[in-house]
């Protein structure tokens, strides 16, 4: 574990969160004023870079631990991290395939969604962003032995995850259907529902995973030294967030708005 000061890490989390929020606003602005897909892609990549580094700690993959005992917790932790990232890589191919399908079928044009959708989408995007922030808080708290902070952060994350799901399923889908975009209407409808559906499914699994971690956390099963379950749930949650960083512009922002 890194032995950084807790308040430094807190400050870092807040700064990253602010950056992400500003970039999201910028993205919306680009979509409205410039309508450049290239710019949108660049912003998305910057956001992903921030999340990978500060929230998902990708650099931890590169720890030199050859000398450790193969049976120690530390060494196995490194192995588990590699396994998890490989899984995420594999999962990314599904989303990549969906992404390609979207562009193959609909080109660079926007989806025929109603303008209500823009508002809903921005809202749920912010909700997801906020949840990532609190997830990061929870993990940092766990690393520093702050059990209360951990419970608080993770509970809030689960709550925000549920809000996100509710937003997609009870607000966004019906409004799309009202605008005539149904799963069976046309290719655009099919793409919209499979992309949001697959992502929502991942959010759902993430919420379940977090709930298990929360329950075990409440029973005191994790310690600052041993909390791989917390770390993996966190990483997975941020990954689902990363997917949305691409899906949001691909579904809502491409093609000049207004």
């Amino acid at each position: 574990m890194e032995h950084t000061n807790k308040s430094d890490v807190l400050r870092q989390g807040v700064i990253v969160f602010i950056f992400l929020a500003v970039l999201t606003a910028l993205e919306f602005f680009v979509a409205v004023e410039i309508g450049s897909t290239v710019l949108l892609a660049m912003i998305a990549f910057v956001k992903v870079g921030l999340v990978f580094y500060y929230y998902m700690h990708i650099y931890r993959l590169n720890v030199q631990d050859e000398d450790l005992d193969r049976h120690s917790y530390q060494y196995k932790l490194g192995t588990s991290r590699i396994g998890l990232w490989l899984f995420l890589l594999s999962d990314a191919f599904i989303f990549g395939g969906l992404f390609v399908s979207r562009f193959n079928l609909l080109g660079l044009g926007p989806l025929p969604l109603s303008s209500d959708s823009q508002f809903t989408a921005l809202t749920i995007t912010s909700v997801l962003l906020l949840s990532s922030f609190f997830m990061n808080r929870a993990e940092v708290s766990m690393e520093h032995g702050d059990r209360k902070g951990f419970i608080f952060g993770i509970s809030l994350t689960i709550l925000l995850g549920l809000v996100f799901l509710a937003g997609v399923i009870t607000v966004e889908w019906p409004s799309a259907i009202n605008a005539g975009v149904t799963p069976s209407s046309n290719a655009a409808g099919a793409v919209f529902f499979i992309m949001t559906g697959m992502h929502a499914f991942h959010v759902l699994t993430g919420v379940i995973f977090l709930s298990i971690v929360l329950r075990n956390g409440l029973r005191g099963l994790y310690s600052p030294e041993k909390h791989w379950a917390v770390e993996s749930a966190t990483t997975y949650w941020h990954f689902v967030d990363v997917v949305w960083l691409f899906f949001y512009p691909a579904l809502y922002l491409i093609g000049k708005l207004i």
């Binding site: 079928l105 069976s184 209407s185 046309n186 290719a187 409808g189 499979i194």
Partner: peptide
Amino acid sequence: LFGMGFFDSEKGGN
């Protein structure tokens, strides 16, 4: 199952 037209040219699929 759901009539999603990914590959159905009549629905704009490919």
